[in-house]
Design a protein around this nucleic acid. Structure first.
Length: 420
DNA sequence: CTTGAGTATGACGCCACAAAGAACC
DNA sequence: CGGGTTCTTTGTGGCGTCATACTCA
């Protein structure tokens, strides 16, 4: 048993809220982030199943565990036996999904329970409430759940793929919740001493009925993508790369990997840099979720690889540079998420091998330009007109301000004389 | 742990005027 | 079209002010 929930202190944490810098159990995550509109916007991701202290960024399909970058590297980067494990990127989620939405955004639920079955959905809720209030729950990875989610995806029709892959990628951070969802050996009304207490000291009501569950859980039935990264690229877990020298490389390489895998149409490749085709589904679906408020063109397909070839490369570059310098320009914003949204109406685009090579060349050129520009960047003040500087240096001032010639001064730069 | 006061830090505007650039003849 | 004149804009540095972050009791 590792650490405990930062909020209730009784449950094992499952999700990590970056905004709060807190590890929370599911119950507290729901309670905390349904408090108001701002907290609902907090971006959460899964907690690493190894160190229990860092937000997970990678999901190991074969081990059915979620790992932070460090643990992923330790577990997969060195070991030859496990380095070939299929992994996929875990993304953040925000909002306060309803029970139905939550069950849908937990993709591995599909392995065990058909979501469309209302009785099963109720079963999920019962189990969820059980586990949220039980310390005896087996929190380990779902070893007994060996059915390949990817295989299921491949067998689905297009509509099913859209639904399933979206919720998987967009909210795969919740995937370690599967073990508890698989459990059926717990009585529905079991509680124990670790039941979270409300602030007034009263024991929280255990949600053991569907109505109760909805009352406490269905706050905002909408998944929201708060920023560009969640929509199109680097997850928060990779944001540190933006401040590294290799940051831009990481970004471009990630796009390139996606582009390289883009020919795997209809095939869900479970690599960490998931197939571009799948990501395009994710993007489409994300618009579907909040279609009313985002874009009317729901039917149009956004191809992830299309955006990475030019617009996204520039966007990443721009945003990275803005992060480094702290400045932001109008073009930055025009070129980030919103400009990508403009691609909604564009036709599907499937790059050929020549396109990919061109993208690679463009990427190399962009990286080179970026590095040269970064190297040549100067933070110190640049004097454009030396004559004006010479003039300013010799001018007399009063409290730092220039004064008219002949007026009394308190500071003469040439003589350092002060009249006061 | 919270709160208020004090301190540190950075951004920004002000000032006059020579130089640069634009507009006009 | 080129040169001269006039007008407008730009840039320069030190200081004060303000806002924000931070520290500490």
């Amino acid at each position: 048993m590792g650490c405990l929930c930062d909020f209730c202190g009784g449950q094992r944490p499952m999700v990590y809220c970056r905004s709060d810098a807190a590890s929370l159990c599911l119950a507290c995550d729901r309670n905390v982030h349904s408090a108001n509109a701002l907290s609902r916007r907090h971006s959460r991701t899964l907690l690493c199943d190894r160190c229990y202290s860092q937000p997970a960024s990678i999901r190991c399909i074969e081990e059915s565990i979620s790992l932070c970058q460090s643990c992923d590297w330790n577990g997969h980067g060195n070991s030859t036996s496990s380095s070939g494990h299929k992994r996929q990127t875990i993304r953040c989620y925000s909002g306060c999904p309803s029970a139905t939405e939550l069950a849908r955004i937990w993709p591995f639920v599909l392995e065990f329970l058909p979501i469309e079955d209302s009785s099963c959905e109720q079963g999920i809720m019962g189990l969820l409430s059980i586990n949220e209030n039980s310390t005896s729950t087996n929190w380990g990875p779902p070893q007994h759940c060996s059915t390949s989610y990817m295989e299921d995806i491949c067998r689905m029709n297009d509509v099913e793929k859209v639904n399933a892959t979206n919720v998987h990628i967009a909210s795969s951070s919740m995937s370690t919740a599967i073990p508890m969802l698989c459990r059926t050996d717990q009585p529905a009304d079991s509680t124990d001493s670790t039941t979270p207490k409300s602030s007034d000291g009263r024991t929280k009501k255990v949600a053991n009925s569907e109505d109760d569950f909805y009352d406490g859980f269905a706050v905002d039935d909408e998944l929201t993508f708060e920023n560009y990264e969640e929509l199109f690229g680097a997850s928060h877990a990779h944001s540190e790369h933006l401040f590294d020298d290799v940051g831009i490389d990481s970004i471009f390489e990630k796009k390139e990997n996606s582009a390289a895998n883009s020919n795997c149409q209809g095939e869900f490749v479970a690599e960490a840099s998931s197939a571009g085709q799948v990501k395009s589904i994710q993007v489409k679906r994300s618009y579907d979720i909040s279609a009313d408020s985002v874009m009317p063109n729901q039917g149009a397909k956004i191809d992830y690889n299309m955006s990475i070839s030019t617009k996204q490369a520039r966007s990443s570059l721009s945003r990275t540079f803005s992060s480094l310098t702290g400045e932001s320009s109008a073009s930055d914003y025009q070129d980030c998420g919103m400009s990508s949204m403009l691609l909604v109406g564009e036709p599907p685009y499937h790059p050929t091998s020549s396109d990919i090579s061109i993208q690679a060349i463009n990427r190399d050129n962009a990286v080179m330009r970026y590095k040269e520009k970064k190297k040549a960047r100067m933070f110190e003040k640049k004097i454009r007109y030396a004559s004006r500087k010479t003039r300013a240096d010799s001018r007399r001032r009063v409290k730092g301000r220039f004064i008219k010639a002949g007026e009394a001064f308190d500071y003469d730069p040439l003589s350092q004389a002060r009249t006061y």
